[in-house]
């Protein structure tokens, strides 16, 4: 059997992160239920704010979705997607990815692990593959929780657009995983790597926001992966940014190639 295609390291990576996946799925599922379920309580207040122009100041910071905050889609995007998925889920997944190799170096388990006939490229590739189920499970269970809650509170939402939104979130989250794995091979201390990962995500959010707010700094938003997700456009109108999808997928592949090349030439000094 070709060892490259056996995905034994990927399976083990998934097993190693299984408990974490279940816990995170539960937390994000509950969060989706809470946030979507909160909308009826805020609807009147948000309508009043929209009528009096109270939502206008938010639009420069949170984008066009802020103007639509009194609708279920706008509320859901801003509260659930922009904060809890695009930022917090990215931080959590990035945190896990950024220690995926460094924890093996720090605990020195990589010494025995690498005595097996596996290439360093294969280790990186399979560790990445092994984290994909976590991303998919959290992503789609969160979607199911939103569908369930939407039906329960009697709001209307295009479930086709919702599904598309969760599809376009996949390349974004996988790009975050790829950044995390790159950090995990460069930085041998997992806590240091995790802090850098969080800083990168926050920096990307700041870049996107500043790029939207300040016209002279508009170009910096292109350095943020978040800019290419356009989840609001998909959730509201079903408009998928194909170019953004391709850019995120290409970024993921490039990051993985860079990680493999770097790891291939790295001295493993334990």
């Amino acid at each position: 059997m070709n060892s490259i295609l056996s995905f034994k390291i990927a399976i083990q990576t998934f097993k190693d992160n299984f408990k974490t996946t279940i816990i995170l799925t539960g937390l994000f599922g509950i969060m989706a239920v809470v946030y979507a379920g909160m909308f009826p309580s805020f609807k009147d207040l948000l309508d009043q704010m929209a009528e009096s122009g109270g939502l206008d100041p938010f639009s420069s910071f949170f984008g066009p979705a802020a103007m639509d905050m009194n609708s279920y889609v706008g509320f859901l995007y801003l509260e659930m997607y922009q904060i809890f998925i695009i930022i917090i889920l990215a931080i959590v997944i990035g945190f896990i990815a950024s220690s995926i190799v460094s924890k093996e170096v720090e605990l020195k388990t990589i010494d025995l692990f690498m005595s097996n006939p596996v290439s360093r490229k294969q280790i990186i590739f399979e560790k990445f593959i092994g984290l994909i189920p976590m991303v998919l499970i959290i992503n789609f269970i969160t979607m199911i929780a939103i569908i369930f809650t939407t039906s329960a509170i009697g709001e209307t939402l295009d479930f086709g657009y919702l599904f598309l939104t969760h599809i376009i979130l996949i390349p974004y989250l996988l790009a975050i995983v790829a950044i995390g794995i790159l950090i995990s091979v460069i930085i041998d201390e997992k806590m240091k790597g995790a802090i850098i990962m969080i800083a990168v995500i926050i920096a990307m959010y700041v870049y996107q926001t500043m790029g939207q707010m300040i016209s002279s700094l508009e170009f910096i938003k292109y350095f943020s992966l978040m800019y290419y997700t356009n989840a609001y456009e998909v959730l509201k109108f079903g408009k998928v940014d194909v170019a953004g999808f391709i850019i995120l997928s290409t970024a993921t592949i490039l990051l993985l190639i860079i990680t493999m090349i770097y790891f291939e030439h790295k001295d493993l000094r334990l």
Binding site: D111, L112, S115, V118, S119
Partner: peptide
Amino acid sequence: VDIKKEVGYIPGDLN
């Protein structure tokens, strides 16, 4: 990788 197919290893600092 080919070499490691025929090599067993016991590290000094076994983790």
